[in-house]
Amino acid sequence: MDWLARAATLRQWTSKGVRAPHKPLLLLYALARHQQDADRELAYTAVEDDLKRLLAEYGPRGRTSPAYPFHHLVSDGVWEVRTKGGHGSPGTNVGDLRASGAAGRLAADLRSSLRSDPALLGRMARTVLDLHFPPSLHRELCDAVGLEIEDAETRPLIPGQRRRSPALRELVLTAYEYQCAFCGYDGRIGAMPVGLEAAHVRWWALGGPDEVANAVCLCSLHHKLFDKGVLGVSDEHRVMVAQRFVGHSAAARDHVLALTGRPLLGPQPGASPIAPDHRSWHTDQVFQGPARPAAAA
């Protein structure tokens, strides 16, 4: 059984670039629980709050039920559900899952493969992370679900898998003249820039192209906040700060809240600005709007 291929081809509802990370999040969670106790079943009532938190933190805006992936992941052959009445899920109704004593865990064949090849767990996790989330969130996601994996041993091994462009970072940093487009940070050690990154606007994991028109130069802090949806870019190429963000310290005010409404720094003349369709995708799928009014800064 090619479990890496199964991890790479989870069936998901898709429409016009809408993010649907429900199954990937549950699979990461299940891999972590298997790593901790390979024989333990996960009662829906025991994990419902954990899954709800993960979906709220790493899913798109809007109300989402953890019952959806708990039921539907079975169709991908990596997950199984049983109730007090036997094998099989009662559906996506939360009340039915609770009342039936539904419990899930990784499919029996997958558990057997993980016992015979322990490194498979890390490779599956890395495949899911690379295909559904930006690199800035990978370590945080592993910590959130309780996964322990080593980067060096978990590079995905899917033949023909799309590769990131190694040239993009230099192209983007040059376009933005080696400064964060949000705050202007331009630190260097000698001739080498430090703490500056090429941030994809439409996530590479979800089909975003490796091109300057789909990227922006950001410092490490603002890249992370951009990928978390705290920060965004308006149609007028100004920084948006989500109203949901709360920070009372001077650092939070200076490094985040003070950015509200600030025009982007760059790109330089002749370089491609962020394309409208990529900017709209980020606003719809990642930004935790609504945005703060500029006067609130």
Rank of each mutant, 00 (worst) to 15 (best):
P166K: 13
E170G: 09
C180F: 03
V201Y: 03
H223G: 05
A175G: 02
F182W: 11
R188P: 04
C183N: 02
Q161E: 14
Q179H: 15
W204T: 00
R169I: 06
Q161F: 00
R164P: 09
F182I: 14
M192D: 15
L173K: 04
A167F: 15
D186H: 15
W203D: 01
G190D: 07
R163D: 12
K224I: 06
V201L: 10
D186M: 06
C183K: 04
L168K: 04
I189D: 10
P193N: 11
A205M: 07
R202D: 01
D210A: 00
V212C: 08
Y185W: 13
G207A: 07
H222N: 01
P193K: 10
L173M: 09
A181L: 11
Y185A: 15
A191T: 13
I189C: 05
Y176V: 00
G208C: 08
S220V: 12
E197K: 01
C183F: 02
R163C: 00
G208W: 00
A215G: 07
E170C: 05
S165F: 11
S165E: 14
A167N: 09
C219R: 11
I189A: 13
W204G: 02
S165K: 02
D210G: 00
A181N: 05
R169C: 06
G195C: 07
H222K: 01
Q179I: 05
P166A: 11
L225I: 08
G160C: 09
R163F: 10
L196R: 10
V201P: 03
F182Q: 00
L206A: 01
L221F: 12
E177L: 11
C219T: 11
G207R: 01
G187M: 09
V172Y: 05
K224C: 09
A205H: 07
G187A: 14
D186L: 03
G160E: 09
R188V: 10
E177Q: 15
F182V: 12
L173H: 10
R188S: 09
R164Y: 01
R169V: 02
G208K: 00
G190V: 08
Q161L: 15
A191Y: 02
W203Q: 03
C217G: 13
G207I: 05
A199C: 05
G184Y: 01
A191R: 14
G195H: 08
A181M: 02
H200V: 04
E170T: 12
D186N: 15
R188I: 04
D186A: 15
V172H: 05
L221D: 13
